[in-house]
C-alpha cells in the first residue's frame, strides 16, 4: 500500500465515521459509543500479528500483554453492547422481553 493510497483510505474512512454517526438519536449514544469501542477491538488482529512475529523475550512479553488487552477490548465490547441493545424494543414487542439479571 503506497503512502498516498493509505492517505485516501484514511480520509474516506474518517468521513464514513462522521457520516455514520451524524444522524444518531441521543437514545443510542451510549450503545453506539460501546459499539464503536467494540469495533476498535480489531486491534486484536494487530496484536496477534505483533506477537506472532515476536522473537526476543521482551517482544513476546509485550506481545502477550497486547493480545490479552486486545481480546478483552473485543470480547468485553461485544458483550456489553449486545446486552444494551438487547433491551431496545418498541411497544409492539412489549411483554416479550426476557430479564437481563
Amino acid at each position: 500500500m503506497t503512502g498516498i493510497v493509505a492517505l485516501y483510505i484514511f480520509m474516506l474512512a474518517a468521513f464514513t465515521g462522521y457520516e455514520v454517526i451524524s444522524r444518531v438519536p441521543v437514545i443510542l449514544h451510549t450503545p453506539l459509543m460501546s459499539g464503536s469501542n467494540f469495533v476498535h477491538g480489531i486491534v486484536l488482529v494487530g496484536a496477534m500479528v505483533a506477537l506472532g512475529s515476536a522473537h526476543t523475550p521482551l517482544e513476546k512479553t509485550i506481545g502477550v500483554i497486547g493480545v490479552l488487552l486486545a481480546a478483552g477490548n473485543a470480547v468485553g465490547g461485544y458483550v456489553v453492547t449486545e446486552r444494551m441493545l438487547e433491551m431496545f424494543k418498541s411497544s409492539g414487542a412489549r411483554g416479550a422481553r426476557k430479564g437481563s439479571h
Binding site: 493509505a6 483510505i9 465515521g17 455514520v20 469495533v39 480489531i42 486491534v43 488482529v45 494487530g46
Partner: peptide, 24 residues
C-alpha cells in the same frame, strides 16, 4: 498502528471509530 502493520481492517475500523468518536 494499522498503517504500521499494513493492515487495512485496522486502518479503516480505527479511523472510522476515531472520527465517529470525535463527533460523539
Amino acid at each position: 498502528e494499522g498503517f504500521v502493520l499494513n493492515n487495512a481492517a485496522m486502518i479503516i475500523a480505527g479511523t472510522v471509530v476515531g472520527s465517529a468518536g470525535t463527533l460523539l
